[in-house]
Each structure stands twice: as C-alpha cells, then as structure tokens.
Nucleic acid binder design. Structure first.
Lengths: 196, 196, 196, 196
DNA sequence: GATGAATGAGAGTTCATTCAT
DNA sequence: TATGAATGAACTCTCATTCAT
C-alpha cells in the first residue's frame, strides 16, 4: 500500500541517517531527502524527531525482550540459550546493521542522559538475563559464588564489545567469524581463559 | 598562578557539563558559567568546543595508554596485571566520575562518527591489551586456542559494562563492591562461570 | 440536507475554534476535527481560512446593520431605540457567545491591520448609530452641543466594555444582570452620573 | 551607552512592528531588521518574542497603574481626576501612538486568550477606577444608584472607543480635537446626553 | 588576560493549501 | 461529495564563534 510504503521508507531512511550521523547531528531534512518525501510528510506521520527515534528504539527493545523471554521460558539446554542470545545480536548485525549500530552507539550511551527511560530499559534486559543465569546456577551448571547480575554484566559486555568493534570497523561478518565469536565468548565465559 | 587556575576551572566545568548533557547538548555558555568566566575566555584558552573536548579525551587516552604500557612492560605477575587494569577503571570511576562517564557515553559513541580518530584510539588500546594477553598465552597461563584479540574484547567488555551500569545508575562504589567486581571479572575470565 | 448539515457543522466548529484560539492560532485541522469532517472538506466548501473567517464576520455585520436599520427606520420612541441596540448586543452574548467573543476580540482587532475592510465596516455602523443620535437631537431629546459622532462613541463604548468584561470573565448573563446593565448604560448616557 | 542604545532601538522597532502587523504576524526578523541589528541580538537581550512583547505590555500597565494611583491618592477635585485619566490616554496617543495602538488592538483583545494574566491586569485597572468612582459617590458628586463598577465601564468604554477610532483611522489629534473629546466624554458622563 | 555584545547559519517544527483518489 | 496524504514556505529559536574594548 502507498501509505505503508512511505512510512516504511521514512523509517528506513531514519535508520540510515541516525546511524551515519547520530541522533544529534541527524537532520530531519536528511531523512526526508533520503526517503524521497517532503519533510512535511515526516511530521505528518511521526510527530517529531524524537518520536521517530523513539519508535525505532522501542521496536528494538521489544524485539530484544521478546527474544529474551523466549529463551527464558524455553525448555532448551542452558548452554544453547546463551548461544541463542549471542546469535541474536550477531544476526541483527548482519541483517540490520543500521539498527544495531544505533543501539550500540546511540541507545547505550545516550541512556546516560535519558536516565529514567534508558536506565529502566537496560535494567529490564539485565533482569531477564539474570533470570537465565540464575536458572543455570539452579541447574548446577554455573558457579553459585558469583552473583547472577555480575554474570550478566560479563556475558553481555563481551557481546557488546564484539558488536561495537565490528560497528566501528564496519567489518563484514562471515559465517566463519560468527562461529569464532560465539566460540570465544562461550569458551571464556563458561570455561575461563586459563589453561586447564 | 591565576592563569592556570582559570584554565583548570574551565576544564573542570567542561568535564561536568559534557557529562551532564553530552557533547552535542553542551553549550559553551554553560561551561563558561559554571567556570565563572566569560565565554570569551574559554575561546581565548581553547580554540573551540571541539578542541576543548578533544583535550579532555586526549588526556584520558594518554593516561590509559600510560597505564597499559606500565603493565605491559612490568615484570609483575600476569594475573596482577589484569587486576591492575580493572582497578584503573574502577579507581577512575571513584576519583573522576565525570571523566569516566564521558568516556563511556561520549567517546565510545562519537567514535562511530569521527571514525578515523576514534577507531584508531580504540585499536591502540586493544592492541596494548592484546600484547598482555599474548604474554599470558606465552607464559602458558592462557589458552592458546582463543585469539588474544578476542580475549581482549571479553575482558574489556566486562569492565566496560560494570562501569556503564554504575554510571547509568549513579551508584557509589565502596571498597567492598570494588573488590567483588574484581573477583567476579577475574573469576569468570580466568576460570569460567561453569562449575568445576 | 446532508450538505447543509456539514456546512453548518463546519461553521459552528469554526466559531468555537476562532473564539478559543483567535484567528491567528486557529488551525484548519482543529476546525475540521471539531466538525468531524476531513479538512479537505473545509476547503471544498470554503476556499480558505480567511474566507471562512470573513463569512462569519460578514454575517455578523449584516445582522448588525439590519438591526440598526430597523431601529433607524422604525417609528418607535427614541429611548427605546437605544435600549434595543443595547439589548441586541446582550442577547447575542447570551445566544451566540462565540460570535460576540470573536467580534470583540478578533474583528475589532484585526481591523487595525485589514484597515480598508475593517475600518469601513466600523464606520458604517457608527454612521447608522450617528443617524439615530441625530434624530434624537432633532427631536429635542439630546443636547445639540455634542456631535452625534461623539455621542455614538460614548454610547457604543459603554456597550462594548460591558460585553468585553463578560467575555473576558466568561460571566453568565442573567435577566437580572441584563436589566441592570441596560439601566446603567441608559441612566448614565441619558442623565449623567452626576447627582441632580 | 552602546548597550542601552541597542536595547532601546530593539524595543522601538518592536513597538513599530507589533503595531503594524500585530503580535501573531510580527516576525522577529522584521524587528531585528528595523532595529538594524542581527536577530541573534534580539534573543541575546530578550529571550523570546513573547518576553519582548510582555516587556512592552508590562511597562504600559505599570505606567497606567502609577497614573491611576496618583489620581486616587491625590487631593484634587474629583472632576479633575477624571479629566486627568482621559488626558493620560490622549497624551499617550499623541506621544507614543504605537504603544497605545498595541494596547488597544493587542492587549485588550488578546486578553481573551491569556485569560489568567490579561484578565487580572484589567481587573486591577478597573478596581482602581472603581475606587475613584466610589470616592465621587461618597463626596455626593456621583449618583449612588449605579454601581461604581458600572460607572467605570461606561467611563473607560468611552475613552477606549475614542482612542480606537483614532487608531483605526490613524487620525492626528490636535489640541482642539483633544479638548472636544474631553468635553464630550465629561459632558455626557457627568450630565448625560439628554437636554435639561 | 578578560569581557560579553554581536553575528548569522542552521535546525526543528507548523500549518495552510493542493490534489489524486 | 469526501478524504487525508503530501507539499514546502515561513517562522522561531539556538549557539558556536568573532571581535572591539
């Protein structure tokens, strides 16, 4: 449909521009131009720059939560759950690089200022991750002397850094590299970097 | 001296304002007001907003490099080197929270756009960290089947997430918590989260 | 008929919105929304915001002129004529508060800028009023040493202020208050405020 | 001084532009251009269009109140007080036509929307006028069967209409005409329009 | 060194109006 | 008749930067 098409084109354009320039330096005119619409239309559909940005961010968070909830509720093997989480981020990097780039460079960081909203978003994600870690502890798979919250930080931190470096370097992610990243993170997180 | 005093006051004010509002939303007038000087003076000493910001960032990077080089060159025990790196970040959080907050929320982020500069800064840091990891492998302490670069990502990612969460939550960092954070990171990184 | 219905709904909505926000701040979208029609339709029936506004204003002026002509031509007692004029304004305030509010706050005002149109409208009204005052002088009821034009200003000024205050204060107008207003204006205008 | 000069030039320009186009249609760029300054400077001194406008309006109100208080407190003859009030308006028309034009066309009318502020401004003025009328009644000069508030409306309404017509017609006000206006208003207000 | 008046490009946003359906 | 997507000129306001004193 014509309507939906344009709306989608605007969102795609926004993803591209926000990634390239960052929220602060992105101009609505850029977004409109890239979407091939007048900027009046951007305001017609989305009320403001902030709303447009939040829309994108909200969608990301809800997808992330959905994935996390799926894993949390699933009956799968604990180890697989962690792998799925890593792969969710890596897959998003491959399929929607703009989105993950915005997440890494705009959402994580700017959260510092939008404290209220941003912080709670993160806490919710960490909380879900924590639940999974706790489950691993209960199953006797993970050590109990490290708080699940701390396990979450280390696990997520590893993923974020891998993603950030790729984003920064605009590196392509082959199947091979993807596999190695998963192995590295899982290897160290589960068994440690120390020789046996 | 009077000069130096004012210069320092301006830098302190800049640290505060950049942290509170982020680079994009920080106004030179805010910085001048907080430093109790006219904003003409800010331009007198530092040529522009960007120069002022870069000055702060440069200082941070060179301190970080200095520390990394110290550890790299030192004859200390490998394990201690990692602990020192973690503690460097935690200490900075305690002593200069504004600086670390800017690093976490502004430097990493803006790197995405100032690619050339930002990326190479990070790569240099990672490279130093990599050297240390390589040394660990050579000493037979670290597994050789995981690339030192990946070990670096995981190790640094853990630190960054701990710091980020504290920054986001404006959490105070007691001796006790500091110790637990070090233990968590070192525990998982070296021995893994899995039960023996 | 359906047509007329919608047209009327649009005009009613316009009256309400113009009163609430004033001409400059009234948006066509507001009017359309309040009338429950698309704003395309507002343009279909009325060509533009200005035309719509003028239509309302024109209607008011022609009603006012009609009333004034009626009084002028009537064989009634002079005193009654003045009372009728006052009551015309008060009645309009009761029955169509939006209309009188727009008149008081928008028409008089915008006259200043649309000089040509606005001024002549007023002059025509004053002229009719003047004719009646002149008649009063000819009948020996009014003093002849005050120009009819001046009598008109004083008489109309009194009415306008009473109306304006009510509009500003959104005061309800009871029969009782209406009567007192008429008495006050007529009393002072005819006999003066001074004690005998 | 240089500072004051520019500030004053901006205010003068604002008076002119607000009068010509009305608040809503006045552009800050117009004001700046007329004042021969960049529009950045307008914002440097006055924070916004609204602030600039309010400043002008506030000044007018405080001058009006000052005059009214002077008359209220004075030991002068009652009749002279009323004449002074009329003359204050007429003098302002002669000396600062822009100011009185803005008052008549923007303040009185737009008060309808800025209810809170605008209404109370008017009520304060009416209240002072009422006090004077009450004094007239106590001295046995004015009839007691008409509420002082109503006397105020009629008296002020007469003045406002004279002023409005002059503003609308951009009429010059000679000494002669000024005198006749005072006589007309005083004559009718005190003794009525009716023949003895 | 120190001030802050002065500048003006640039960005977000609004909204009357048009027009294809 | 009726809709609302689409346009873009116009306007307010911001703020880094310059420069005379």
């Amino acid at each position: 449909m014509a309507k939906t098409d344009k709306q989608e084109m605007i969102i795609d354009a926004a993803l591209e521009v926000f990634r390239q320039k960052g929220y602060a330096n992105a101009r609505m005119a850029d977004i409109a131009r890239r979407a091939n619409v007048s900027y009046g239309l951007v305001y017609h559909y989305f009320g403001s720059k902030e709303v447009l940005f939040d829309l994108i961010v909200e969608k990301w968070w809800s997808e992330l939560y959905a994935m996390m909830n799926r894993e949390k509720e699933s009956n799968g093997v604990f180890r697989e759950k962690l792998i799925h989480i890593i792969q969710f981020f890596l897959d998003t990097y491959v399929q929607r690089p703009n989105l993950i780039s915005i997440f890494v460079s705009e959402v994580c960081r700017s959260s510092v200022y939008h404290t209220q909203e941003g912080l709670s978003r993160f806490l919710k994600f960490f909380s879900l991750c924590e639940d999974i870690m706790l489950e691993g502890q209960k199953q006797g798979i993970l050590k109990k002397d490290i708080p699940p919250r701390h396990l979450t930080y280390i696990f997520y931190g590893a993923i974020e850094t891998f993603i950030s470096v790729m984003v920064l370097g605009k590196e392509p992610l082959t199947k091979k590299r993807q596999e190695r990243a998963v192995n590295a993170i899982m290897g160290v997180f589960m068994d440690g970097a120390k020789t046996a």
